[in-house]
Design a protein around this nucleic acid. Sequence first.
DNA 1: TAATCTTACGTTACCGGTAACCTTATGCTA
DNA 2: TAGCATAAGGTTACCGGTAACGTAAGATTA
Lengths: 339, 339
Amino acid sequence: MAHGSNKRQTVSLAEVAGAAGVSKMTASRVIRGASGFSMETRDKVLKQVDLLGYVPNRIAAAFGSEQTSTIIGVSVPHLSGGMFGFVLDSINTALAKTGYQTMIGAHENSVITEEIWVKNILSWRPAGLVLSGHSHTQSTRDLLKAQGIPVAEIWNLNTSPIDLSIGFNHSDCGYEMAQYILSQGYKRIGYVGADAHAPGMGRLRKNGFESALDAASMKFAAIEILNDRSGYYAGYYGTENILNRSPNLQAIYYQDDAMAIGGIFYCQSIGMDVPKDIGIAGWGGMEAASVLPQRLTTTIVSTQGLGRSAADALIARIRGEAVQDVTIIPTRLAPGNTI
Amino acid sequence: MAHGSNKRQTVSLAEVAGAAGVSKMTASRVIRGASGFSMETRDKVLKQVDLLGYVPNRIAAAFGSEQTSTIIGVSVPHLSGGMFGFVLDSINTALAKTGYQTMIGAHENSVITEEIWVKNILSWRPAGLVLSGHSHTQSTRDLLKAQGIPVAEIWNLNTSPIDLSIGFNHSDCGYEMAQYILSQGYKRIGYVGADAHAPGMGRLRKNGFESALDAASMKFAAIEILNDRSGYYAGYYGTENILNRSPNLQAIYYQDDAMAIGGIFYCQSIGMDVPKDIGIAGWGGMEAASVLPQRLTTTIVSTQGLGRSAADALIARIRGEAVQDVTIIPTRLAPGNTI
DNA sequence: TAATCTTACGTTACCGGTAACCTTATGCTA
DNA sequence: TAGCATAAGGTTACCGGTAACGTAAGATTA
C-alpha cells in the first residue's frame, strides 16, 4: 500500500464510455454485442476499448445482472492418471466454446470432500455443476435441490439423479465381461481392484461380474482389493498378491486397463503365459494397451462421448431446453487375445 | 418467468442479519471469521446461517471488496494423458487448501488459444495465473504486465519471466542424457518426437541433446517428429517410421516416456532386442514404465514438486511475501537397462 | 479519577456493471 | 399527412456484499 501501486490499474466501462462520448449503457451494449446501436457508435466504442485496453469485469457483470454467472463447476475424483483427464478435456472444450468457464475440483472419491467443494462452488453462483462418482452426502443432495441449479452426474448411471445423469452402465460392463469369460471356458476367476478405502465405479463392475457368476452358480475364486490408487504398478503387485494366495487362478478381471496391463507384466515376469496359463481382462480401452504385443480383452468406453454429452445436456438444461434426464453412453466389449 | 419459480431462491446476508438481530456488517464479520464480535453474537448468527441455509455470495464479495477475487487461472496444454494431470492435481490441492478456486484452461500448445483464454480469465479478476508452455504472444505478455497480476510460468524455466518461473531445465535434461548415451558408446542416435505443429518443451530437450552431440562433433542420425500428440502409440509408429528410414540406428531418444515405451514395444514386435540391438531413452519417469520387464533409462522429474512449488510461490507473491523469481525443480537422470 | 485504549458493534458509501424504462428522431403505412 | 412502429440512445435504480469510519461501553493506565 505504501510502495506498491496496485490501486485500480484497470479501466472501467465508464471510462470507455466517456472517451467514446456515449453513455455507459450504450458502451455496455456494444461490448456485449447486444442490439441498439449504430455501426458508427460501435466503431467509436470498440476503438476506445482497444485504445484503453479495457478488460470486461465479469464479476461485476454477474453481480449486476444477478441470476447466475457463466461458471460451471466440475468435480472429478482426480485430475491425474486414469481416464478422467479425457472426460475433462472434452467437457472443457465443449463448455469453452459456449462461453462458460470451468471451475474444477478433485474429491478423491470422498463424499465429504465433495460436499465441501460443492458448498464452496455454490458461493460462486455457478450456472451448473458436473459431478462424478456415484454417491453424495444427503446434505449435498439437499443443498443442490434447494438451489435448483442444473446438475449433471456423470460417469455412472443414476436412475434417480439429482437432475441429469450421463454415464456408462458399469454393472452391465461387468456382467457382460463375466459372461464372455465364462463362455471361453474359464472357471477359477479372480478380481483385482484398488481404492479399497474409497470405492469408485470399479465396485459396480465387480458387482455386475459377480451377478453373472452367481447366475452360473459360481463365485470369485479370489479377490484382491488394494488400498492404493489404481495404476500400472498397483495392478502389478495386486496380481502378485492374488497369485501368491491363489496360484491356480485361470483368469483375472481387473478394475481397469491400467491394472490389467500391470497384471500382464507381472505374469510375464514370472514366466506365465497370457492367455495360456492365465486369462486377463480389463475395462476402459486405454491407449496404453494399443502397443502391447497382445490385444487386451477389455470394455471400450468413449470418454470423449461422455464429456461431450454431459456438456451438451447441461447447457441445454441451463438454457431451459428439453433434455432427457438419463443418457446412457454405450460401451463395447472388445475381445482381444488375453482371454 | 411465467411458470418458472427461479426468482431469488437464495438467502441474503441481510436476511441472516435481520433474523439474528444484528447488522449486515456484524453478520459479515462472523461469517468471514474476521474479528469484532462476541461469542454470543457469533452463535446467534451462525444459528441463522444454518437455519436459513445461507450460501455466501462470493461474486458479490469479490465485487464489493473490489481488488481481486480468490480465483486462480491455470492454463495447461491439455488435461488428458501426459503428465500435466499430475501437476494440476498438486496445484489444485495446494490452492484449495488456501481457499482459492482454480479455473482451468487447455490451450493445446497454441499461443493464440492461450491468449484468448487469458483475456477471458482476466475478466474474472483472478488473484493470479499459472501458465504452462514456453512462449506467449506479445499481447498476452503486455496484457499481463499491464494488469500487474501475479503470474507463475511453469514447466520450463524462463530466465526473463513475466513474473515468476518454476520449472525443469529441459535443455539440461537433453544435454545430460546425450552425454550419458554417448558415454555408453552409442554412435548413431535418432530422435522421435510429436506435436510437430505445436512444439512443446520436448523441443528444448531435443535441442539440449543436440548441443551435446555437437560438442562431440556429432549429429542426430535421424529425426522423426510426428504431427500427432505424444502417446504410446505415437511412439510405436514413430519408431516404425524412423527405423524404416534408418535401420542401422543404435539408440533413440524420445520426447517422453510414453513414446519411449511405445518404441520398446515396436522394437520387441519386430524381434529387436533392447538394449542389445537398439538403445532407448525417454523423459519424465512415468508410472507406466514401472511395470516393464526392463527399467527404462529416463530422466525422472517431480510433477508433484513442480505443482506444489508453483502454488506456493504464486500464493506468496499474491500475499506480497518475498519470493524468488526463478525456481528450478531438480531432475534426475535414472540409468536403466534400455541403454 | 481523568485520560486513554480496547472491544463490540452500527452507519454510510460504494464497487461496475445491467435490467427496465423512457425519450427522441426517423421511416413507413394507411 | 396523421399515426404508428422501429432504431438509437440516455436515465435511474439496484444487485449483495465489504472498507472505512463512527460510537458507546467497559477495562486499563497515568
